[in-house]
Nucleic acid binder design. Sequence first.
DNA 1: CCGTATCCCTAATGATACTG
DNA 2: CAGTATCATTAGGGATACGG
Lengths: 139, 139
Amino acid sequence: MDARAASARQMIAIYRTRPEGLENCPVRNVVQNVFGKWSALLLMVLAEKPYRFGELRRLVPDISQRMLTQTLRDLQRDGYVHREVFPTKPPSVEYSLTDMGRSMFDSLQHLLHWAENNVAAVHAARQRFDDAEAGSNAT
Amino acid sequence: MDARAASARQMIAIYRTRPEGLENCPVRNVVQNVFGKWSALLLMVLAEKPYRFGELRRLVPDISQRMLTQTLRDLQRDGYVHREVFPTKPPSVEYSLTDMGRSMFDSLQHLLHWAENNVAAVHAARQRFDDAEAGSNAT
DNA sequence: CCGTATCCCTAATGATACTG
DNA sequence: CAGTATCATTAGGGATACGG
């Protein structure tokens, strides 16, 4: 608790110390890009093993081709994903995590596991909140 | 390395097994709400200690009042934040992390720290990517 | 002081069609 | 098979003014 507080204080210090800190904040610069609608999901899939473009599409059935391309590109740009083109006919492209991607994913894991183990609790909290809200809105 | 793959496979299994899995996926249901533009930042601040509404505004100077209210409300709804109203005149409101919030934040921490320690590497990766792109676009 | 309501604008996403 | 381009839609977010 004091460890957490100290750690938190240190991080927000970076953020709020100087005006440019707002732009250089790791949370905004780094974390934000992992928090896109599809990023975490794709990282999870790629953490299992490398996959081809079409395979990823099938594994994440509700992503559009547009967002798949774009998200992979963003992840590649930040250095998490490696893109390898095989000059077959027709060409195939394989995506895999880089060392940096694996390193980052290991840190992200903790949160993913927490989520897995606490979906029910979060849903319950929402339920309570919504019920209380409905109650206070009633006459 | 196989631990990661196994863990990842298990998680995406949950996600892709059944159609309703798409909606019940912890990543979407839980993690997504921590990944909003301001959520992680506010959690960091509140992890240090409880704060009043106005204090939070000052600590995160570039958030609008609207988004501060809304983000706090969302975090409260999911059970991470407790909202306590003190009937002073004028009223003051204190926000603090709940036990669940602290538990979740501990898991999020890992990622935040990774980001802190790797901002430079991520920026470097982006630079390389953009340079390579510019190169291939040139004649 | 805290929160809400409104208006408005931009960025994010999806659907669809087309190319190497 | 992978990827791009275009269009249309929506959700996210900022500014401002008002209310308890």
